[in-house]
């Protein structure tokens, strides 16, 4: 075990090209873009499929198909088709992000208590009000779990960007391996892992903030005394 690369202060200099701060920033940039694009595509489709019940085979099968696609292979294919650049990387990462979000949006909508939705309609909510005021808030815990698993996967996998000449924490792995600098490889692996944990913690906080206490079970259970 050699952690010298990781603890070398020079590598943590904000302005150092190839230093941790810049690599992390680039890495998070890929992650954020892939999550954004993936969510914009998968969330409405998943909500729609879950809401209407139509095309549920897409939601179920896309999950399995998406997970079985090797991201690195897909990236190489995209590079062959589109040339080098950010686009092939984002496409490969977005394909990774879509299945968990699509599946969780679908599952979240399907798991809703139909009586509550019926009450919402019966009280005179318009369809979009039912969707945004009742269905989505109720499905949020499931939606968030899908988003968090997508985020974890993409944080780990965004290292592939370095394989096609881009930046990100993958640089430490690729470059370290190229020059047999295992301290650098180890540093890259550790930073990616820590980043993944921190991101998940952050998302857990976001979830806590946006999911109603009435759903998360954080509201204290009812007292047994009063039964009427």
């Amino acid at each position: 075990m050699n952690l010298s690369y990781l603890f070398d202060a020079a590598h943590w200099d904000l302005s150092a090209p190839g230093g941790f701060p810049q690599l992390i920033l680039a890495h998070l940039g890929y992650v954020a873009l892939a999550l954004l694009i993936g969510t914009v595509i998968a969330l409405p489709v998943g909500l729609w499929i879950g809401h209407t019940g139509r095309g549920s085979f897409i939601a179920i099968n896309s999950g399995n198909a998406g997970r079985s696609l090797p991201t690195l292979g897909l990236l190489m294919l995209m590079v062959t088709l589109l040339g080098l650049g950010l686009t092939p990387v984002l496409i490969a990462l977005t394909v990774l992000v879509i299945p968990p979000i699509l599946t969780s949006a679908y599952a979240g909508m399907r798991s809703l208590d139909h009586r509550v939705v019926d009450a919402a309609k019966g009280m005179g909510m318009r369809p979009w009000q039912v969707l945004f005021k009742v269905e989505v808030p109720m499905a949020l815990p499931v939606l968030m779990s899908g988003f968090r698993s997508a985020a974890l996967q993409v944080v780990a996998t965004a290292t592939v960007a370095a394989a096609v000449g881009l930046s990100g924490l993958g640089r430490l792995l690729i470059d370290g391996l190229a020059v047999n600098d295992y301290s650098r490889v180890l540093a890259g692996a550790i930073v990616v892992a820590v980043l993944a944990v921190l991101l998940d913690l952050l998302l857990a906080l976001v979830q806590r903030w946006i999911v109603s206490p009435g759903l998360s079970g954080r509201a204290q259970p009812r007292s047994r005394r009063a039964t009427t």
């Binding site: 509550v116 019926d118 009450a119 919402a120 005179g124 109720m138 999911v211 009435g214």
Partner: peptide, 14 residues
Amino acid sequence: IGYVIQHAGLFPHK
């Protein structure tokens, strides 16, 4: 029109 259903159908998040 007031609407009351079995099991109340309350919004759990509100």
